[in-house]
Simulated assay, not measured.
Amino acid sequence: MDLDAVRTFVAAVDAGRFQDAAAELSITQQAVSKRVATLERILGVSLFTRTGRGAKLTIDGQAFLPHARDLLRAEERALASVRPGRRALRVDVIGRRLAPAGLLRGFHRAFPEVELDVVTLFDADAAIDAIRSGTIDASFRAVAMPGLRLPDDFGAARVFDEPIQLLTGPDHALASARAVTPADLAGYRIWMPGIVPGTEWAAYYDALADAFGLTIETTGPDFGIEPLLDTIADSRSLVTFVGEETRLVWPAGHGLRRIAVRDPVPVYPHSLLWHRDNPHPALASLRDHLRSGLSDRPETETWTPVWAQ
């Protein structure tokens, strides 16, 4: 549908006369008539009855008017979503079930007036490129991973240390444990097919395995979280790691167990990245909100890779 014609129709309704609508739109009265006629032809109905006092809406015109206004509002939202300085705050959360998405939901509850666009990018390199180009405003990443160097004009702040938990099926030898230590897991098969070499989460779990002598297997295709949960639920030998804040839902019959890992608690280091010259007015509010939540977790002995300390 021709949105210029829709805009002209709404202007004519609001002005009451084609002549006044033409002045408001900075076009000729003839152009107003032409656009309205085009819209009527597209719709197959008459929208106005012309009178000596101006233009009066027909029944069809009255029915179409609220939808015409909706179209123009949708156009404005579409433009604002990509217009620098006016679009919503756009943040990369890596995955919508992971802890960064929960942090962003907390920010939204605290600042419901801030419009948010939530995106998911694959790795830190993609996030850095998107921040540099202005495509996104911020990203949650483990930014100190080996081989990753942030540009000098980037800002980064550690915002959340997420405890790692063990996930087992009901028949696994560790299923009844209330907690385990990292050392307790030596010799068990920890299966994580979603780990991709070169990513920040691969660097984290490589360091975890090296520090405590663990066996983390990444073999086999990654079909997503649901098939992984199905496999773990039916296995007596396989376990996997999940973040404490990762949102998981499984059928009641699976009987999966989330088990705390302690002494020390392995924590995944989530940081927020942004460009120092980013002018988005809500970015500072996001940083301040995340900074205020850093002290919420009680002190406990934790482990994180040397490169993240």
Rank of each mutant, 00 (worst) to 15 (best):
G187M: 09
L286G: 07
A55W: 14
D161Q: 09
T246H: 07
E24L: 15
W274R: 01
A207G: 06
V267W: 00
W191S: 03
R90I: 00
I27E: 05
M1K: 05
L294G: 00
W201P: 00
A142P: 03
D129F: 12
V196S: 04
R90Q: 03
E76I: 03
F64P: 06
L71R: 07
V118M: 10
D70G: 08
T120Q: 15
L229M: 15
V91W: 01
Y204M: 05
R158C: 04
A63H: 10
G147Y: 09
L103S: 01
L72G: 01
T302M: 06
A126Y: 07
I136L: 05
S33L: 07
L228F: 01
I42F: 13
H67C: 02
V265R: 01
G255M: 09
S33K: 12
A110E: 13
E200C: 03
F160P: 00
L121T: 10
A12N: 02
I128E: 12
P151I: 10
G293S: 04
L104S: 11
A127C: 13
V119A: 07
S237M: 04
A23L: 14
A55Y: 11
S133R: 15
H254S: 10
H172P: 08
A31L: 08
L228Y: 00
D152V: 10
A173E: 15
G253C: 05
P305G: 02
R83M: 15
D4V: 02
V93H: 06
T218V: 13
A138C: 00
V306M: 07
A63D: 10
S133I: 07
V180E: 03
Q19L: 08
D152I: 07
R158H: 11
R178I: 00
Y205R: 04
G243H: 06
V32F: 04
A233C: 10
E301P: 02
P279E: 12
L116S: 12
S237H: 10
P251Q: 06
L272N: 00
Q165K: 12
G255Q: 08
D4F: 01
R109D: 13
L286D: 05
P100S: 05
T199C: 05
R87C: 03
L228M: 12
L39G: 00
R178C: 01
P197V: 09
Q62L: 11
F212E: 00
Y268L: 02
